[in-house]
Design a protein around this nucleic acid. Sequence first.
DNA 1: TGTACATCAGTGAACGCGCGTTCACTGATGTAC
DNA 2: TGTACATCAGTGAACGCGCGTTCACTGATGTAC
Lengths: 235, 235
Amino acid sequence: MTAVGKETPRERYRTQLRAEIKERAWEQIAAAGAPGLSLNAIAKQMGMSGPALYRYFAGRDELITELIRDAYRSLADAVRSAAAAPGSDLAVLGHALRAWALDDPQRYFLVYGTPVPGYHAPDDITAIAAEIMASLLDAAQRMTGTAVGTPADGRPGPGSGPGSDTGPDARLEAHLAEHRQWAADHPAPPAALRRALVFWTRLHGLLSLELAGHFTGMGFDPAELYEGELRRLTR
Amino acid sequence: MTAVGKETPRERYRTQLRAEIKERAWEQIAAAGAPGLSLNAIAKQMGMSGPALYRYFAGRDELITELIRDAYRSLADAVRSAAAAPGSDLAVLGHALRAWALDDPQRYFLVYGTPVPGYHAPDDITAIAAEIMASLLDAAQRMTGTAVGTPADGRPGPGSGPGSDTGPDARLEAHLAEHRQWAADHPAPPAALRRALVFWTRLHGLLSLELAGHFTGMGFDPAELYEGELRRLTR
DNA sequence: TGTACATCAGTGAACGCGCGTTCACTGATGTAC
DNA sequence: TGTACATCAGTGAACGCGCGTTCACTGATGTAC
């Protein structure tokens, strides 16, 4: 039995403690927002002294970056696995997205909330963001493929038959076709590019307003609004 | 000449200094985000000592609340004046909204960004938020009115003629018709309710993603995407 | 116009706090022979 | 199995910092007679 891939007890303890630190960090964020995150407070809550945490994280910044990375990672996984489910379509993705967001609003806001001026995410996080878009593109392309001739989210404009490029979205799609860095190595056609983007932006509009509490007191059920938009996006 | 409505020099000085404090506060927020706002730092930047500011604001919290109020106020004014312009429609409102957001991203995020857990806006701010929705409802109703029989943002669903309630949005509109606390004293019909909400949520999705930098590196022009969505919303 | 008083802006010292982070050190755990 | 050493987790003290906020006080500005 080789030692390769086997964790020593010390290593196991390390990873376990790192995980617990992160858990406490999430609790703190949930209680006071990301700016209120404090290493000393985490240590105190774990019953240890402040400097002890420096065995596990180089400092506060590294911990926060790690949390952001984990947040992106979990979203990318949620989206990917939703997209991989048999018979999955954009509606399934939409539901997965909302479930992920509601599951932990502060995690959502760590990804999509107010940016900290001057902060730039490391490259590997940008790569995860690209992964998410790729999943959306996959699903959008699949849907566009099965609905060829009946652009699901586009009404045929005046004088535009199936396959026409003079519909109401023609201009946007033409622009996207020429500016698709983000989809450079993805075969999705322009209609799918537009569809993925619109899916993403509309749902985030709903989610960020809902999670920030801007619907409270208005009376309606945010889920109904979400379903309504999803219906428009997936027909 | 009565003294009524006339400011004494001292009063003028007071209001002027309050204004300058707020200006510096906005600069700080732009530089480091709202959590980084510090009374002492503002005082230092103005060449005075920290405690001096307590002549003008009861404390940090009051200053921040005041900034939030001003942000809401300026948005409400921007939306209202756009709606009041002759020949104005939802497209005009949409452009005004984007201009307002781009004018000062941090101000935008003070209103629509990550909520601070536990913070509750005072009632007068909630009232301004309602004012904004009322402007949207006005515009949406006007538009729905002029386009009666051709629900501008709704494709006629299968078997749904003009005036039908079996279209793709029927379910959502029915729900909104029964849950319209936010539009309790507004005569807008269900279709206008839906339209106003969708207008609001879609555009905020675009704006928050754009301002937070989630489009950077993707290649396309956010304005084109915004226009594309606006076209869909106003036809 | 001039004097006496009240109002109010701003200062400087101080308080208590919690923060991130470093450093030298103790004590336990693991490793090598 | 037992001893000698290396590794590493965690502590406690300390540093320097900036924060919000209070308080007693000075000095300038305005008001009343």
